[in-house]
Simulated scan of single mutants.
Amino acid sequence: MSDPTETTRREMVAQLNAVEGSREYLESKHGEVWDTTELQEQFEVLGFMSPFVGVRRRSDNLKGSVLFQASPRYYFGFQPE
């Protein structure tokens, strides 16, 4: 099965992981940032397709997505559906 988003997603992954971002850098660029434990506390993970994670925010059940960088693993950029 062909994934028409694969090339774009691979480019995004390469860009996100090109420079190891500190948490402070990511916060200044993207706003709120979560490590894995914090993400699990704030969100229910619904699905994964790198660099996106489908989530449901626990506080209000709002579905959306976040981006992540691989190393160190941080999640950021919550976008509601």
Rank of each mutant, 00 (worst) to 15 (best):
E44S: 06
L39K: 02
E24N: 12
T5W: 08
T8V: 09
S2F: 04
L67N: 12
F43R: 02
V45D: 09
R58E: 00
D60W: 14
T7E: 14
N17D: 05
R73H: 03
T36R: 05
T7D: 12
F52E: 01
A70M: 02
V19T: 08
T36V: 13
R57S: 01
S2P: 00
A70Q: 04
V66M: 00
F43K: 00
Y75F: 01
Q42T: 10
T5S: 13
Q79D: 12
Q69F: 03
T37H: 10
M49Q: 15
H30Y: 13
L62G: 06
E81P: 11
V53L: 02
G54N: 07
S2V: 04
T7Q: 12
G64A: 00
P51N: 08
E32S: 05
L62N: 06
V45N: 01
T36Q: 14
F43M: 06
E41T: 06
D60A: 09
F52T: 03
S71V: 10
Q69T: 04
S2R: 01
S65I: 09
P72L: 01
Q79P: 07
H30L: 14
E41Q: 15
E32N: 02
V13Y: 07
R56T: 14
R57K: 05
E11C: 13
A70L: 00
W34P: 04
L39W: 05
L16S: 13
E6P: 03
S71Y: 08
L62D: 12
G21I: 03
L26C: 07
R58G: 11
K29F: 13
R10S: 11
T36E: 08
F76Y: 08
A14V: 15
R23M: 09
S22T: 10
L16Y: 06
Q15N: 11
G47K: 07
R10Q: 07
S2C: 04
R23E: 08
K63G: 06
A14Y: 11
E11D: 14
L39E: 05
L67S: 00
G31F: 02
S2Y: 11
D3K: 00
Y74N: 00
K29L: 15
V53E: 01
V55W: 04
E81N: 14
S50L: 12
T8L: 07
V45F: 02
E24L: 14
S59G: 01
E44C: 10
F76Q: 04
Y25R: 07
E81R: 14
M49K: 05
E81Y: 14
V19P: 06
T36K: 14
L39P: 01
S65D: 10
T36F: 12
S2K: 08
V55R: 05
L67C: 07
D35C: 11
G21N: 05
Q15W: 12
E41R: 15
F68P: 01
V33T: 04
E24Q: 15
M1P: 00
L39C: 10
R56M: 11
E32M: 04
Q40R: 15
R9K: 03
F48D: 08
V53G: 01
P72F: 02
A14G: 13
S28N: 15
H30G: 14
G47I: 00
V55I: 06
S22G: 09
R9Q: 09
D35E: 13
L46W: 01
F76C: 00
E44K: 11
W34I: 04
F48A: 09
N17E: 10
M1H: 09
A14M: 13
L67M: 13
T5V: 08
